[in-house]
């Protein structure tokens, strides 16, 4: 890894400079993570009196547990739904805004601020709009003949949390798509126009392929977001219900660990989640490296 051509020489100063961050990292990141690893191989009896070392049995149990498998499936649907919805809307907005000249900043301002809204707040907002008794949208849906009730219908609940999670993420994706679009040289698009490609054709044959690094990057970021940062969306609204229909993995870790008090299982779930994060991070880094190299 690079440093500057010339560096300062000091035997102790760099360690002092690093100390605050490294100490905090060790205490609050590395140590808990290793604890999770250790606890994931322990099992406590129901009274918390005896702890036994059980190797990988917690993991084996998890993968045999239909609840856990269901939660995995729920997470996958949630993550894919959120990512697709948010990416397609923000790409549409970015392409349109990129065509504007004078109104570009105005639209950007209006599209950017949901980034600042906490996931939990986003959840509550949409929960309110869709509230079966006072919400506006169920009222409108009823006129269309659909009986919306996310307290009872699993599909409605999932749709609600996906909407809330995707809504909040639009700003982020929009900004990256817009930056990506602006880095495509105008001359390429002009060349394609001279070659006789119409607007739609230009988008799918020139712009979209050139945007693919951004799209791929955002896909990874959005999946990570949907899997880990949306705890608030779920917790503040559906609380995993109805009947586990929105019980995503991060929420389950919390519930099993804090409410169910099943430390071994919760730790094993943490370890699996860390595994997923690490894989996603590596994928993302490979991408960054590739982009640096071309």
């Amino acid at each position: 890894m690079q440093t500057k051509r010339m560096t300062f020489t000091s035997r102790w100063l760099p360690y002092v400079l690093l100390a605050p961050q490294v100490i905090i990292t060790l205490i609050f990141f590395v140590w808990p993570a290793s604890q999770a690893l250790w606890q994931s191989m322990l099992r406590q009896d129901p009274f918390g009196l005896r702890t036994t070392f059980v190797w990988f049995r917690n993991f084996e149990r998890l993968f045999a547990d239909p609840n856990y498998l269901a939660s995995m499936k729920t997470t996958a649907i949630f993550a894919v739904g959120t990512t697709l919805l948010s990416l397609s809307l923000s790409l549409l907005f970015a392409v349109m805004v990129n065509r504007m000249i004078r109104s570009r900043d105005l639209y950007t301002t209006f599209l950017v601020w949901p980034y600042a809204v906490a996931p939990a707040v986003a959840g509550v907002l949409w929960w309110f709009i869709f509230n079966p008794s006072v919400g506006i949208l169920p009222y409108m849906l009823e006129m269309l003949g659909y009986d919306w009730n996310h307290r009872l219908h699993a599909g409605d609940a999932m749709a609600l949390v996906i909407l809330a999670a995707a809504w909040k993420q639009i700003s982020y994706n929009f900004l990256f798509f817009l930056a990506g679009l602006q880095s495509i040289p105008q001359s390429l698009i002009e060349a394609a126009a001279i070659d006789g490609a119409g607007r739609t054709k230009r988008f799918w044959t020139i712009i979209f392929p050139l945007l693919s690094p951004t799209t791929f990057f955002l896909m990874v970021v959005n999946i990570v977001y949907a899997m880990f940062d949306t705890f608030g969306v779920i917790h503040a609204t559906t609380a995993g219900g109805p009947a586990q229909a929105t019980n995503i993995l991060v929420y389950k870790v919390y519930r099993d660990g804090f409410i169910g008090n099943n430390l071994g299982s919760s730790a094993a779930q943490s370890v699996i989640l860390m595994g997923i994060v690490i894989v996603l991070t590596v994928v993302q880094f490979r991408w960054i490296e590739r982009r640096v190299n071309y």
Binding site: F29, P32, A36, G257, A267, S270, M274, I278
Partner: peptide, 10 residues
């Protein structure tokens, strides 16, 4: 790589 959500309990 380790958001707080994945290592809540420890």
């Amino acid at each position: 790589m380790l958001p707080v959500e994945v290592r809540i309990v420890p």
